[in-house]
Simulated assay, not measured.
Amino acid sequence: MLGGAGVSNFGDEFMVRRWLEFYKEHGLEGELTIDGASAENLSGLFGGIYRKASFVSVFNALKYSGPDNFWESLRRGLNFYDNGGLNNYREFKKWSEKIISTKLMHLHGGGYINEIWPQSAFLLGVAAATKLKYNCKLVGTGIGLLPLSKVPDLYRDEFNKIINTFDFIECRDYDSYLFLKNSVDNADNIFYGLDDTYLAHVDNVSNVDGCNLHISYFSKAKESLHRLLNKLPDEYFNKFSNVYFWECTMQDRECFDIVKAKHPKVKLLDYRDLVLNPLPVNAGDEMITARFHPHLLAARKGVAGYYREDGSYYDVKQGSVVDLGSPFKSIEKITASHISQQAFNRIVSFEDARVAMKRILGARIVEYYKNSN
């Protein structure tokens, strides 16, 4: 399993947790190798729970030794084995046999492959190269690819080859799906699906009293957070039984400190709490968020609230949750009044069906693995 986890980020790690749970249910825990940004971080988070799985950083480590350009990184990944592969990297040669014997490569979900992090394109290219070299199965789930510019003519054939090499690619947002469908010839293996967190229902603490407020912000949006806190009167915060701050990465601590300075009763949930423990969210709670996964997971439990738009990367992500039926509104429309709960909440109403659909996809991957040579 290959992807963007291992950076101590709630969303990426939470998706890996969902797949670890699912594969363990199907008796495959001992067959799993998870390649992430930091083997130490992944092992520290999951190693005590999933003792039979292996956590490494091979392809993720190698992506940083290439060009800082999306399309050149993509090409480098596709040509990786033709240019010597792991034989060029003494510290990684010990993993050669593991890669040669790979029966299935799973590029798991997230929004980590785009031009914000251009070297991540290496993962897309090397995943396809591994299938072409060693004839393994290759799947992608819950993928978000934007922002990404139009495929340059110079790389069009290689991009087509890479995407068509996948047995299937599931896109978690419609914009990424359209990008691939419009960029790739004969793209019958691409479909519009769901975020990887839909592998299971949202675990939540159901005995949290009263109506609670949840806040999730990142440091680049701290000026927006300052303006928001100055706009809302103290009475807005005092009406909640609890105020929780979701620290999705350690960099979010600065925003927690900003909230705490104004409202000392706020409680911190760090990324380990969020990944490993049930979430203290219930229908009737409210949320203010600049982040994607807090919005998605809270909305699925019947929470209403407000999301921040920033005009770029997060607009696609937040918009994809609204497309699923989230009742959240733009933060520009926030008021100090309680949010009236909708009689019909579309994202909640479709929860069971969507989890069932995602698990069918997971079962298809398991079947691929068990039937591979």
Results as ranks from 00 to 15, higher is better:
D173Q: 05
R75I: 02
G311N: 05
I347F: 11
V355L: 09
L178Y: 09
R172P: 05
S120P: 01
Y368V: 05
V355T: 13
E247Q: 15
A200V: 00
A304Q: 15
D157A: 11
M1C: 04
W95R: 05
E332R: 04
I169W: 01
A298H: 12
I365L: 06
D285E: 08
N160H: 08
V316C: 11
L146Y: 12
P264D: 06
K265S: 13
A283H: 15
A261D: 11
N41M: 02
E29P: 07
W246K: 10
L194G: 09
L20Q: 06
I49T: 13
I169N: 03
H106P: 05
L123S: 07
D273N: 12
L86H: 03
H214C: 01
H201F: 08
W71E: 08
T249I: 11
P67D: 13
K231E: 12
S337V: 12
R354M: 15
D203L: 08
F14L: 15
G319L: 02
D167G: 03
H201Y: 08
N60R: 03
K231L: 10
D310L: 02
S73N: 03
Q342C: 03
I288E: 00
M287Q: 11
N87R: 13
L86W: 01
A121V: 03
I365R: 02
D12L: 09
L225Y: 11
